[in-house]
Computed example of a mutant assay.
Amino acid sequence: MANSIILTVTGKDRPGLVDDMSAIITQLEGNWLESRITKLSGNFAGIIRVSVPEQNTEQLEADLKAVECESFHLSIELQNSVEADVPVRELSLEIIGPDHPGIIRDISHALAEKKISINEMLTDCNDGAMSSERIFSAEINISIPIAVSVDMLRDKLEDLADQLMVDISMDDLEGTVTRI
């Protein structure tokens, strides 16, 4: 039987970091299943899900911990069970507008109020092309319970877009894009 393990990795980036981790996982008959890895301000940040034979789990944890050092931190969590699937609809949100504190707080709060989960979120902040104003952008993939009305969500996001002075587009991942 195989165990599913979630690795959270942060620290100073260096060439070969992913190679070191993947070699340990493979050596212990593990399988790298999925990951999200990025470089933020010169730092490595990643979350990785691996599968490893039950009898190799402790050795995997020990070997990966041996890679850890002062500038590289690793958290290992054994994934005990998977929650029962609740029927959901996946949507993608794109947000763009003048940057100011609280955009993520307000959007995440509006989604949480409706029991909508954030599956993935990419954010950025850059200087505007035509001005020195900072422009915030986000791409957010969400899961909406089937019981939640997409029209109700659209209305909520429309009100929020007006309050935050941002543009929000909603894509149902089947090709229908709604500009809010």
Rank of each mutant, 00 (worst) to 15 (best):
I95H: 05
I95G: 13
I95F: 07
I96F: 01
G97L: 06
G97D: 07
P98H: 11
D99A: 14
H100T: 15
P101S: 08
P101M: 02
P101N: 07
G102T: 02
G102W: 00
G102H: 01
I104K: 01
I104P: 09
R105T: 03
R105G: 04
D106G: 03
I107W: 01
I107T: 01
S108I: 03
S108C: 00
H109A: 10
H109I: 10
H109R: 11
H109C: 10
A110M: 05
L111N: 07
A112V: 10
A112C: 07
A112H: 05
E113C: 15
E113T: 15
K114F: 01
K114V: 07
K114R: 10
K114M: 11
K115N: 12
K115R: 03
I116T: 04
I116Q: 03
S117Y: 01
S117G: 06
I118G: 05
I118N: 06
I118V: 15
N119L: 01
N119M: 00
E120Q: 09
L122E: 15
L122T: 15
T123K: 12
T123D: 10
D124V: 08
C125T: 15
N126E: 07
N126F: 14
D127W: 06
D127L: 13
G128S: 14
A129C: 12
A129K: 14
M130A: 14
M130I: 13
S131K: 05
S131M: 02
S132F: 00
E133R: 05
E133H: 07
R134C: 12
R134I: 09
I135E: 02
F136A: 15
F136S: 13
F136C: 13
F136L: 10
S137H: 10
S137G: 14
A138W: 12
E139S: 13
I140M: 09
N141Y: 03
N141E: 06
I142C: 07
I142F: 03
I142T: 09
I142W: 01
I142S: 06
S143D: 04
I144T: 01
